[in-house]
Simulated assay, not measured.
Amino acid sequence: MKDRFMLLLYMASVLILTSVHDVLFLSFFLLSLLLISGRDIFALLKKSFISVIFFNFTISISYIIFCLLKNEEWLSYVVLLNIRVFTLTFLTFLFVSKINIFKAVSFYKTLQYLLTISYSQILTYRRSFEDFSLSLKSRLIQKPDRKDAYTFVSRVFSYFFKKSLENSREISQAMRSRGFFID
C-alpha cells in the first residue's frame, strides 16, 4: 500500500513539476528532495548529474545560440529548464531507490506484465554491455585509444539498436497473441 501511495505521489509531483514555471518553487522542491534523500544524497546527485549533463548542455547551448542570433533574453529559460530537468531526474532516482516498483503497480496486472518485460530487457542489455566492456578489456593490453573507443561504442550502439528492433517485433507479436492489442 505504501508503494502505491508513493507511486501516486510521484506521478502528482511530476505533474506539478512540469506545470509550474517558477524557478523559486522548483528550487524549493529540489531542496526538499535533497533533504528527504538522507544518506543517499551524494549517490543520487551523482546519478542525476551524469544522466542530465549531456542533454542539458546540448539543449542549453543550442537555445543560447538561437537567442543570441535573435537578440532575445535566454537566461531565465535556461535556468528554468535546467532546474526542472535536474529536479525531475533526481525525483525519479529517489523514487526508484525508495520503493518496489513491482508492488506499486501490482493493482494492474497488465501494467505489471509490461513492467516485467521492460525490466527484463534492461537487465539483458546491462549484462550485454558489461560483457562487451569486459571483452574489450580482455583483448587489449593497454587502454584503448580514442579511435578504438569510438569504434567500440559505435559497434555496441549498432548491436543494441538492431537488438531493440528485433526484440520489439518479438514482444509485440507475443503481446498481440495474448490479446494486448485489440484490432
Rank of each mutant, 00 (worst) to 15 (best):
Y10N: 06
I16T: 08
V20T: 10
V23F: 04
S27K: 15
F28Q: 07
F29W: 06
L30M: 00
L34T: 10
L35W: 01
S37C: 11
G38K: 04
R39C: 00
D40Q: 15
I41F: 06
F49L: 14
I50L: 11
F54P: 05
F55C: 04
F57G: 07
T58V: 12
T58M: 12
S60V: 07
I61G: 02
Y63L: 11
I64M: 15
I64Q: 04
L68S: 12
L69A: 09
K70Q: 14
L75D: 07
S76R: 14
S76L: 11
V78Y: 06
N82C: 01
I83R: 09
V85P: 01
V85Q: 05
F86A: 09
F86Q: 10
F90Q: 05
L91P: 11
L94V: 00
F95V: 07
S97P: 13
N100I: 04
I101H: 12
A104I: 09
V105M: 10
V105L: 11
K109I: 01
Y113Q: 04
L114S: 06
L115R: 02
Y119T: 13
Y119Q: 14
S120H: 04
Q121S: 09
T124L: 15
Y125M: 12
Y125K: 14
E130Q: 10
S133L: 15
S135I: 00
L136Y: 11
L140I: 00
I141W: 09
P144F: 05
R146V: 03
R146C: 03
R146A: 03
D148R: 14
Y150G: 01
T151E: 00
T151L: 08
F157Y: 09
F157E: 01
S158I: 04
Y159L: 09
F160S: 02
K162Q: 03
S164K: 10
A174D: 13
S177F: 08
G179N: 11
G179C: 05
I182E: 14
I182T: 15
D183A: 04
D183M: 00
